[in-house]
Design a binder for these strands. Structure first.
Length: 575
RNA sequence: CGGGGCAUAGCGCAGCCUGGUAGCGCACCUGCUUUGGGAGCAGGGGGUCGGGGGUUCGAAUCCCUCUGCCCCGACCA
């Protein structure tokens, strides 16, 4: 490809709306352009990268025994009504009606469609197991799309669904996919980490996320420093092996705290640590009654854990100020567990504090030196809080966990029979009995991977593509192309030779100044650069430069194709 | 959905407070010069000032309204 023919759309300035480096560079390098909030055009350069990602994913899925299909993007409401998700999925599901006023949605995921397909076509255990996948555009009407294609509303996802006769088979299919994912991220040149995860709204009971570690990541991942435990912080179990609490040393008293409604205010006012305070959150109960959740002042509520409680509404909803007042008799900010006549569930951390400070259920007052089992009943405890750095590792409690940020690029779930039961996805087993499929589902964010790769690999000059993702393998920058027939001849010959050797080559044949060409080739991140000018040609050499290291060296022109083959095969991430 | 902000040339912005000729840098076009890290000089093109309504002799500027986009929070792959 020649730059004079190629749709290059680079930007010198950083677009004002782009926050994170991958978004900035994707716009500047001309990979994408925004069309609407969370909706993007993929320009030729970006599309080439996208194709590289898809191709690697496709090859590894095929190798793992999965078969590619293409399911519809638009799905009828009935399917979602049957699974119950028409109501459960919420406003994130983009819904619309056709000309006959029939309801449809734009698929955010495809469990319903695939299960219906399997129900129709798979009748016998002899046909199992099956794993079907697609690479397709999804739409999720995110409340707040941000960070470019990192969290867009329209995005491309590889989603696979496995069908097995029993849970052992499902576990095997799951493991096969897990292994395939490890290979995929390795081949893509990404440093990805598998972590234990919550299965969220997709449902199911066993799940791992694959994360690319990056400061800009939206998820927090807990690692153990010694064992190989790694989990989304939402998932970290903080149930203590042996609950303990210091003895009470003081007598409870009520103190005036005018205008104090936050933990920070309270700590300032009384000059105490937030770990010595308790906060009381009122949430909607699963019946109509509100529930009080009590946490230490310095801890925060983990929604996933709260939602696991039978008496808490799922999804979790915080009570409004008005509801709090109706339930407790006082406005938010003054609520405490003492004398509360709604159900109270206390986090293990909060249950371990003695002589604590909490709201007095009376405007302008707090209680001080409060103790469980004395000033109020021994609490009903549960694991409710978000893990933080330094919490004990669930596998080896003697070790503290570390918390790092990650970008979720893949997620594997064991679904079990949730969808097959809801949608009558059954087959006949060897005894002729009807059984529901044991399903698994496996997602990879194709578009997000492009952004994640850039987050992980860039410098001040632009993108540094891992070789397997690069839109072109090598670029040729001629010096004095229009002036020197010698340069023009050498460039054309090398371009042809490299192309014949199987490299994808970008030849900068514009009449630009060298600085412009260097800057743009750096920005778009081509791994290998060759500079050809009269100066070198007179000695029979060309200059080679490695984008990642910035190191350059001169090589003889006549054997350069062989040289580049050697160099590129030595690079850490080769195709 | 709550809170905040922005909308003026392809991009980045000024002008608005205090109403009166729509501007700057980059990009773009032409010419000359230049050619190893986003060139110099000269000339040039390009804007319903997000839409609608109002106030006024006169609105980018003041008022009302709608829309879009961005940020913070709750939500999520």
């Amino acid at each position: 490809m020649r730059t004079s023919q190629f749709f290059l759309a680079t930007l010198k300035e950083v677009p004002a709306d782009a926050e994170i480096v991958s978004h900035q560079l994707m716009l500047r390098a001309g990979l994408i352009r925004q069309v609407a909030a969370g909706v993007y055009n993929w320009l030729p350069l970006g599309h080439r990268v996208l194709s590289k990602v898809s191709q690697v994913v496709r090859e590894e899925m095929n190798r793992a025994g999965a078969q590619e299909v293409l399911l519809p993007a638009v799905q009828p409401a009935e399917l979602w009504q049957q699974s119950g998700r028409w109501d459960d999925y919420g406003p994130e599901l983009l819904r619309f009606a056709d000309r006959h006023e029939r309801d449809f949605c734009f698929g955010p995921t495809h469990e319903e469609v695939i299960t219906t397909l399997a129900r129709a076509e798979i009748r016998s255990y002899r046909q199992l197991p099956v794993n079907l996948y697609q690479i397709q555009t999804k739409f999720r009407d995110e409340i707040r799309p941000r960070f470019g294609v990192m969290r867009s509303r329209e995005f491309i996802m590889k989603d696979a669904y496995s069908f097995d006769r029993d849970s052992e088979g499902m576990s095997q299919s799951y493991q096969t996919m897990y292994d395939a994912y490890v290979r995929i991220f390795e081949r893509l040149g990404l440093q990805a980490q598998a972590v234990e995860a919550d299965s969220g709204t997709i449902g199911g009971n066993f799940s791992h996320e694959f994360h690319v570690l990056a400061e800009s990541g939206e998820d927090a991942i807990a690692f153990c420093s010694t064992c190989n435990y790694a989990a989304n912080v939402e998932k970290v179990d903080l149930t203590p092996a042996s609950p303990s609490r210091p003895d009470a040393t003081e007598t409870m008293s009520e103190i005036a705290t005018p205008n104090v409604h936050t933990i920070a205010d309270l700590c300032n006012c009384l000059n105490i640590a937030s770990s010595q305070t308790l906060k009381t959150l009122i949430v909607q109960g699963s019946e109509d009654t509100p529930i009080a959740l009590v946490l230490r002042g310095d801890h925060s509520l983990n929604k996933v854990k709260a939602e696991m409680l039978a008496e808490v509404a799922n999804p979790l909803r915080m009570a409004s100020a008005k509801e709090v007042e109706e339930a407790t008799g006082v406005a938010p900010g003054s609520v405490g567990p003492v004398g509360l006549n709604i159900p109270v569930i206390v986090d293990h951390g909060a249950a371990g504090v003695a002589d604590f400070v909490c709201g007095a259920n009376r405007e302008g007052f707090h209680l001080k030196s409060v103790n469980w089992g004395r000033d109020l009943a021994e609490p009903r405890t549960h694991d409710l809080r978000q893990a933080v750095e330094g919490d004990p590792c669930p596998t080896d409690p003697s070790q503290p966990i570390q918390v790092r940020r990650g970008i979720e690029v893949g997620h594997v779930f064991q679904l079990g029979t949730k969808y097959s039961e809801a949608l009558d996805g059954n087959f006949l087993d060897a005894e002729g009995r009807s059984q529901p499929f044991h399903m698994g589902c496996y997602g990879i964010g194709i578009t997000r991977i492009v952004a994640a790769a850039i987050e992980q690999s860039h410098d001040d000059n632009g993108i540094i593509w891992p070789a397997p993702l690069a839109p072109f393998d090598v670029c040729i920058v001629p010096i004095g192309l229009k002036k020197s027939q010698q340069v023009a001849d050498a460039v054309e010959a090398l371009y042809a030779d490299l192309t014949d050797a199987g490299f994808s080559v970008l030849l900068d044949d514009r009449n630009e100044r060298p600085g412009v060409m260097f800057s743009e080739m750096d920005l778009i991140g081509i791994p290998h650069r060759i500079v050809i000018g009269e100066r070198g040609l007179s000695k029979g050499i060309v200059e080679y430069r490695d984008r990642a290291s910035g190191e350059s060296a001169d090589y003889p022109l006549d054997a350069f194709v062989t040289t580049l083959k050697t160099i590129s095969s030595l690079a850490p991430n080769t195709t």
